Structure formats: structure tokens, C-alpha cells
Simulated assay, not measured.
Amino acid sequence: MLHKRIVSQRSGSAATLGCLLALSALATHAQERPVSSERFALRVETVASGLEHPWSVAFLPDGRMLVTERPGRMRIVNGDGELSAPLPGLPAVAARGQGGLLDVVLAPDFAESRQVFWSYAERRAEGSGTSVARGRLVNDRLEDVKVIFRQTPGVESHGHFGSRLVFARDGALFVTLGERQARHFAVRAQDLETHFGKIVRLDRDGKALPDNPFWRVAGAAPEIWSYGHRNVQGAALHPQTGELWAVEHGPKGGDELNIVRAGANYGWPLVTHGIAYSGEPLGVATERPGIASAVKVWVPSIATTGLAFYTGDRLAPWRGNVFVGGLYGMLVRLELDGERVVHEERLLTELKERIRDVRQGPDGCLYVLTDSPKGRLLKLDRAAP
């Protein structure tokens, strides 16, 4: 059953008519509750509910949506908010600790290829690691499934898998990878021989691209694009520059928004604005020569996950803003002046729900996922005057 909730808050691309009609069907039977806001009244609707720890959402050309659930299910949400049965064809998912089924994205040429890419925690003989698979979505099932990339090495840890997938304008696939959490693994975020704490850049077969920055560096993993990351769980392309921006979790304090550039070192665990959960100091500095500085740092942490640039017309006052999900119960809106953050607004705090993902839909609305055993897919639209 589709439940709707409307909340007032402060405050794209063109879609097919069929997609817009399907998405507009989600706006029926809503109930209103006013909440203060900075700019305009915002309607927040529950598109679908009953999702178990949902992690990512992707929009299909026919107006339906793919949603991943961390325990290892991928479902389709139709225009009435109904959930399909889990799609058959997924490889085994290691759903333990922070692991499970993670991100999902469509291939840039999905209309022709029908290819879908997803990341997940995979159990291996030596432990576990983040893997990426692809398959073709045909008649609501995944076919020709193939694992195209595996983070190495696999280790015995159930934390910090990452992982977001972003296709660049040139068709390359960025994959964000965590440093696996334990201190003796975290230090390897600085080690170019491993995929721990890295963002990698691949072709659609999962192979390293020859113009990657460490392609010819002896001993380095050729897939690496950037290193020194802790646990990146939000990433998106800047709509003007095409550069990759990402948010990553700090420890206790020190969440970061970064512009991810080829060959750059983002410092973890040497440079951080956070401390250990025990209260002990971490790293050697908050800034250091040769270490890329963050665009923004959150102290205390908001537990950053999910990232989207807004480019649409429906919420026009927000055009050019960055939206970041926070597991501490908020959606953060950031205004930019070039590469500087000049204003921050915290939205959806009244919901008191963990925000796992945020995406711009083809109708110009924002969609967010709440992370809980009974998670929801929410739609943020402008309220009627």
C-alpha cells in the first residue's frame, strides 16, 4: 500500500512523457503537515515503504525505479509505489556488518544495452571485499550476470566497503572503495599496492584504463584513480566541470566533501579532522603538504552518504546546489561559489530517519532513501502555493 506524507521544508533533465506520467501518479492521497523552511514550501511524499535497509535507487526509462536492499535484494518500484519480488540473477551477497548489496546504476546506453551495474560485499576464501557486477535487465530479471571487478585483497572485516558507482562523461566507471575499518587495514589506504581506501577508474569490463595516474607505476594497482580515502559512500559528477565529487565518513568528526582528482592523496589516516571513537587522537595533522584539502569538513560528523547535484527546473531555487545524505537524520543542502561552500541548510531533521541516498529524478524532484529495517523511498517536490 502506498503511504504519503507531506512536510514543508526550505528549501532535469527532460524525461519521456510516459516516465513523467508514471512519476506523477505518486502524488495522490497525500496528507499535509507544515514545517518551517528557508525558501519555499516542500512536499515530502512516501513513494514506497517496507524496504529493508535500502541503499540505492536508479531510474528506469519507463518511469519505474530499481532499489537495492542491503540484505541482498534488488527490487523494482512501479508508478503506484508497489514493490516487485526480488529480481533473480544476483550473485551471492555477504550481508554482514556494513556489508551487503550496495549501489546500483544504469549503463549510459541502457536503452540499447539494458546493462545494469551494482556493487556489493562478496565473501571470499580469504575474507570479504567489495565487488562490482553487471547484468542485463530483461523481463524484470537479470541475465548475463558477470563479476567485473574485485577489491583486493579480501580480508576478515565487516566494515567500510564503500561503495558508490559513477559513470564519467567519457564512459569510464568510478568505484569508491573503503579501507575496511580496522586500524591495521586503514593504514593501507596509503598503500598503492592495494585497493583499500581508493577510488578506482575502470572500463565497462572492469579493466584499468591506460590513462589512469598509476598505470605505469611499478607495484601500484593500475585501477587506482585516487587514494587516502576512509569510506566514500557518496559520489557524483559536477554538472559543469564533469569532475567527480565525493563525500566520505570521518571517524568521530571529520566527514569530508572532496573534489576527486587523478593521482591525488586525500590523507587518511595521516590527515584527519576527527578523533578515534575512544577519544584518542588520530593522524598527524589536519592539513599537510601534498595532501588534497577537503572542500568542506563536518565536525561533529553527520555520517555522510549519498551525494547529488541539483540541475532541474522544478526546484529551481536549488539549481546548482549539492545535496548530501546524513545517517544522523538529515539531508544537507550546500550552496556553492565555485569550489567553496558558502551556505548549509539541514533538511528532513523532523523525520528523525537515517538518510542513505539522494538522487535527482527525471521529473526534477529529489528522491531519498531512509535506512532502517522498514526503510522508505521519499520524493521531495515543491508544495502547491
Rank of each mutant, 00 (worst) to 15 (best):
H343F: 03
W118R: 00
G263L: 03
V200W: 03
L87I: 08
V324N: 02
G320H: 10
P239A: 09
R340F: 02
A125I: 09
E38M: 08
V175P: 06
G326Q: 08
L90Y: 05
A316Q: 12
V147K: 11
A303I: 00
D313C: 00
G18S: 11
A125V: 12
G89A: 07
G171A: 06
E335Q: 15
A27R: 14
E143Y: 00
S24Q: 14
R354Y: 00
R164A: 01
P251D: 12
S8K: 13
R346W: 02
N321I: 01
Y120T: 04
D80T: 10
P34Y: 02
G329H: 08
T370E: 08
Y310E: 10
D80S: 13
A218K: 13
W215H: 14
G129D: 12
A182M: 11
I355P: 02
T286E: 14
E82K: 13
S13F: 11
G253H: 06
W245H: 06
L348P: 06
V166A: 03
P222D: 04
G171Y: 07
R123Y: 07
V322W: 02
V260L: 11
F196S: 04
G79M: 04
R376H: 11
R43C: 14
L20D: 07
F161A: 02
P54Y: 06
K198G: 01
S301V: 06
A41E: 14
Y328C: 00
V299K: 13
V322L: 15
L142H: 05
V175M: 09
V145D: 05
R314V: 12
R230Y: 11
P222T: 08
R188D: 15
G364T: 07
L192Y: 07
S128T: 13
V271S: 04
D109T: 03
V166N: 03
I6F: 13
H53T: 03
P153H: 05
F214P: 01
G320M: 10
Y367I: 04
G154H: 09
A58L: 03
E38H: 10
W225Y: 14
P362G: 07
V299M: 03
V175Q: 10
F214H: 02
A276Q: 12
L282A: 05
R188T: 10
T286N: 11
Q360D: 01
Y277D: 12
V260K: 05
V132Q: 03
V341D: 10
A95W: 00
A308R: 08
L26F: 00
A172F: 03
P269W: 07
P317C: 07
V187T: 15
F196M: 12
L192A: 08
T304S: 14
R123F: 05
C365T: 14
S157C: 07
G326F: 02
E179D: 15
M65E: 15
G154N: 08
A235W: 07
V341Q: 08
D62K: 10
P153A: 04
S293H: 11
A121C: 06
W318K: 00
T28V: 12
L377N: 06
